[in-house]
Each structure stands twice: as structure tokens, then as C-alpha cells.
Design a protein around this nucleic acid. Structure first.
Lengths: 171, 171
DNA sequence: GTCTATAGCTAGATAGAC
DNA sequence: GTCTATCTAGCTATAGAC
């Protein structure tokens, strides 16, 4: 996953993937007969499961008060993005090559993200339309701030974006 | 430029660059002896000049009222991003390979962008700190909405983000 | 200044021993 | 199931004719 995230699909070489996994190339092909495409699919499936567990389940857990849910989800999100130092897998894979190969999975993962935050929005009393708008805005701010943080070598934009999101859901 | 933008640095092949420019590979090397790296530098220089002309000059032109400046700059920005259908060059080049080769130019271009919007913010009466915050927020929303628009195959997030930016500078 | 032809290399992917 | 060795195709880059 770290290789695909930092190099993208075209930039991720099997030599790097082999080194990162500790397996030789031929062993990777034994486990993923479909080659690099199948390896990427596996990473995307893992990411989808991660969103399900660490974002969706957390934000939709009605046994926990909404503010607490958000804090927990944000904690997870901060972790997976290295608090602004890492790149989003979906962003790395959404170049032309990746979009044509994995567009469906990327769209599904982001859709799950939006639904999660929509549920949270409704839990704090927003109507459906407003909740979706807030969800999109949260996604945009996370992604955009990651671009800015990465490019400027400064995690402040990400931290600020996270704080803005918290503020938005507490009003 | 379109090739680097849609394929990234690793994904952009000289065959594609040759086809896109209408020159053969050897001719490209005649004009860019430094190879793909030099071609990318040229594209980044072009992008920087574009920002200077179409964003910085427009937003800092004190002979035009601020609202008009913003409208003009937004018009240009909408054009260069295909109103949400295209990808930002800086995003495409900010994978690991691109960051180590072009990090300085990317940082400079984005810095120019931020300064442009900061000047606009001050022109509508904000203090320096607030103006910079608004500039960052505008950049984040453009970039984030481009990610969302591209991934979902829907330009609505980009259009919405542009509208939010306009609103922010008119209050 | 553009071309054809090709060098040299690394990519993704396989064969087959163990 | 993992390995070494290898294939072929594509890559970046160059040589040299015109």
C-alpha cells in the first residue's frame, strides 16, 4: 500500500513491491496471478475495509454521541494520513491509468466516505441535503489540505482543516 | 502539458509526448537535451507563467474593483481546469518521484497562488493573517473539489467550490 | 531541426527447480 | 510457496543521415 500511495500505479514497480513486501517477484505473482492490477485491487479492497471499519462504523454508531464519533473518526483519519505527511491512496491512483482500471473502486470508497459523514450530519440534526453538502465539504478539505500540506512540506493546513471540520459539526 | 497532467511523471512516456507535440522522439531530445526532466521543467515554467499572468496579475490589479478581479481570475481558473474535468498539474507531479525532482517549482507555484489570493483578501479589507487563511482555504477547496469531481465524474463539487470562494470574498 | 534506426536498460511477467 | 533465471516489450536516450 505504501508503494502505491507514494508512487502511483505507473510509478510502482514490481521490484519495489517485492522489496516492500519481503517477497521476490515470482512469489508475488504466485499470490497475485493477475499481476500489478490484481495487487492494486487488493490494496483498494483493504482501503475500502479500512474506511468501513475506521470511518463508517465509527460515524454511524448510534450508541455513541456524535461529537465523540467524530473525534474517534478524525483520530483514525489523522493516523492513516500521517497527520498530513502522507498522501491519499485514491489521489495517487486517480491519474488516467488508475481511473480507467480502478475508477469503480475509487468511486465506491469515496462514496462510502461521503455516506459516513452524511450520517453524522443527520445525527447532529441537519437535513439530508445539508448533511451531504457538509460531507462533501469535509472530504474536500481533507483532500485539499493534504495536497497543500504535502506540497509545502508543512502539516499545518491538514491540522487546520481537521479543526474546521470539528467546528462545523459542533455548531 | 496535457500528458504530464493526466499521466504524471512516471506515467508520461516519450512516445506519448512525441505524439502529443507532433514531433518525433529525437526531435524532442534536440529541443530538450535534458530529456523528460527538462520537458517537465518547461511545463512547470509555463504553468508558473500562467499563474503569474492569469491569477497573480489579475488579483493584484488595483485598478479593477476586487469583485471584478476575482470573477476574472475564477474565469481563468475554470478554463484551465476544464471546469472540474481536468486535473491540476501540481497534483499529478506531486508523487514521490515528482516531489524530489520538482518540489521547489511546485512549492513556488503554489506559493504564488497563495500570495495572489492573499492580496485579494487584503483588498477586500481583511488583515494579513486572515487574508492568508482565506487564500489557503481557497486553494484547498479548488484542489479538493477537483479530486472529488474527477473521482465521481461530476463537475458539481468544483462548481460549488468556486461559488463558495466567490461568496467568501464578497462578505 | 527533423527524421529513421537502434542502443542499453528496466519494466512486467513466466518457467521450472526445490 | 518461494526461489533463481529468463523472456519479451516498452522505456529513456543516442547516433547519424538528410
Amino acid at each position: 500500500m505504501s508503494v502505491f500511495r507514494s508512487k502511483g500505479y505507473d510509478g510502482a514497480s514490481l521490484n519495489e513491491l517485492a522489496e516492500a513486501t519481503g517477497l521476490k517477484k515470482a512469489s508475488l505473482y504466485h499470490r497475485f496471478p493477475g499481476g500489478k492490477k490484481e495487487m492494486t485491487d487488493a490494496v483498494l479492497d483493504f482501503m475500502e475495509a479500512w474506511i468501513n471499519e475506521k470511518v463508517y462504523m465509527v460515524l454511524s454508531n448510534s450508541e455513541v454521541p456524535p461529537q465523540r464519533r467524530l473525534k474517534d473518526a478524525i483520530h483514525n483519519i489523522g493516523q492513516v494520513y500521517g497527520h498530513g505527511t502522507k498522501v491519499c491512496l485514491y489521489r495517487s491512483l486517480s491519474m488516467d491509468t488508475g481511473m480507467s482500471l480502478f475508477g469503480n473502486k475509487i468511486e465506491k470508497g469515496i462514496g462510502q466516505w461521503l455516506e459516513s459523514f452524511s450520517i453524522l450530519g443527520e445525527a447532529v440534526g441537519k437535513d439530508v441535503e445539508t448533511a451531504l453538502k457538509m460531507a462533501k465539504q469535509s472530504f474536500i478539505e481533507v483532500q485539499g489540505s493534504l495536497v497543500l500540506s504535502k506540497a509545502m512540506g508543512n502539516t499545518e493546513p491538514f491540522a487546520q482543516a481537521i479543526q474546521n471540520i470539528e467546528t462545523r459539526y459542533s455548531s
